[in-house]
Each structure stands twice: as structure tokens, then as C-alpha cells.
Amino acid sequence: MSQTSVLFDVAGPRTRARHRVYTVISLVVILGLAALLVLRMADRGQFAYDLWEPFLTPEYIQALLVDGLLQTLKMAFFSVILAVVFGTIFGVGKLSDHASVRWVCWSVVEFFRAVPVLMLMIFLYFSYGAGPGGLDAFWCVVIALTLYNGSVLAEVFRAGILAVPRGQSEAAYAIGMRKTQVMTQILLPQAVKIMLPAIISQCVVALKDTSLGYAITAPGLTFVGKQIYTDFQNQLQTVIVVASLYVSVNLVLTWIATWVQRKFVGEKKILEVSMVAETEVGAGLAPGAR
């Protein structure tokens, strides 16, 4: 007997019959809801060709992919790279032997983890960005995302370094290595392997958060989407198209994270860090609690 869940036993014939009834009921309810939505859309003329037209016109597709998706990916890419640098510095800093360094790193990380990314963006853009010679919106988004994701990654790095067995650093000290050498040659290389899936999961979070650039007119998918729906008044259609672009990119990232997890970390326990996205191995689900 293969029991797959703690919650219930393998079903017998009567239970299976009951489950079939439930399946039919839930099928009817869900299909009913879907049908209601589709009918409503048809009723309001939301399937009219001219509302969907921009997503079939080459210029708009190009705008969505080049000015939208590419810019979004660029913002996410820059902020993840910078966040890894920020995270390394502050993660190692939180493990420093000097109480003052530890304290400073700790408070910086706690601060940026608690402040909403959107608020950070708005502050950066409207206080230092808008106007001549200021930061442009693109970099405001990148800086805000770097500070937030970097703080989360600092916690990941710290936990990753602590997860390296103690004997490793003790052995390194015993053969006469210095503190910096132990960190850069012994601890970090081993920690990176454990942390990779968490870093990739954080990419999903960064990518989703680039959409907040909408509030400060930063380039990206949401910005292009807004231009399209102000021109065509096709909010619903735009939301559907933009959301599916985001979902597909995120699913690819999740798939990579799962693959990396299998390849480099194996069946070992996944690094657990509070407030950090977790990768569900094999579940095919996206990580990314922000």
C-alpha cells in the first residue's frame, strides 16, 4: 500500500464513488464561473477585434517585447547583480568579529527589509530623480530593488555561510589561513552552492517588483501596457497579455531554480531563511513571498 499523504488513507470503493461526485460538483462550479466570466466579457464586447488588435500588430508586439519585456529584464538583471554584491558585503558584515560592523550591517539590512520597495522608489524618484540632472526612473527602480533584494540576500548569505560545517573553517584556521582567506577560499565557495536556488528565487521577486516602476513612469512592461490601454481602452486585454508574459518568464526562472537545486544541492535540506522565498523542489510552483 502506498500512502502518499499524512491526511488520509488510500480510498476504498465507496470513498472513490463519493470523490467522483465531488469532482463533478467542483467541475461544474469552476466551469460555471469560467463560463460566467466569458459570457460577461462577450456581453460587454470585450472580444471585439479592435480591442485585441494591438497584440496582433507587429509594431505593438515589438514595443511590448523591446521597450517592455527587454527593459523589465534589464532592470531585473542589474538589480539582481548589484543585490548579490550588496548581499555579500552585508551578509559577511553581519558575521564580522567587530560588534560595531555587525551592528551597522544588521540595522541597514533590517531597515531595507522593512521598508516597502514602492516607497523607496517614490522617495528616490521624486526627491532625487525628477528634474534635470537627476536619476532617471530606470535607475531609481534598480537602486530600490538592489537595496531591498540585497538585504534579503544578505540574510541568505549569512545563513549559507553558517550552513558550511564548522570543521571546514576550523581546519582552515589550523593550517594557518587568515580570516579573509578562510572566508574567500573556504567558506564562500561552499556557501554559494547552497545559496544558488535561493538567489534564483529572489530573481523572480525582483522581476515581479520591476512592475512597481509603473508608479514612477519607469520603462518596462507595465509602462508600455499603460500606454497601450490608454490608447485603445483595452485594460482587460492588456492585463491578460502582460500578466502572461510575466508568468511565462517567472515559470522559466522557477524551472531553472529547481534544476539548479537538483543538480548542485541534491536532496539536502533547503536553506531556510526567514522572509525569503523558498523553492519547492519538483512541485513546479513559483517561489517568491516577498
Binding site: 515581479k208 507595465t222 500578466a243 508568468v247
Partner: peptide, 28 residues
């Protein structure tokens, strides 16, 4: 739960919504 269809439906909802930025859901 034990009912395969419900489990599938919940999984699809969770996967789609989790991967969509909150801002897009607000716009929707």
C-alpha cells in the same frame, strides 16, 4: 485534498497568481 480535479484547479490558480506581479492584479 484527495480530489484530483480540485487539487489541479487550486494549483493552477496558485501558480498563475503567484507569478503575476501584484501591480497587475491591482490593475485587473
Amino acid at each position: 485534498g484527495p480530489i484530483a480535479f480540485m487539487s489541479k484547479a487550486a494549483t493552477v490558480y496558485i501558480t498563475v497568481v503567484r507569478n503575476t506581479p501584484l501591480l497587475i492584479i491591482f490593475v485587473f
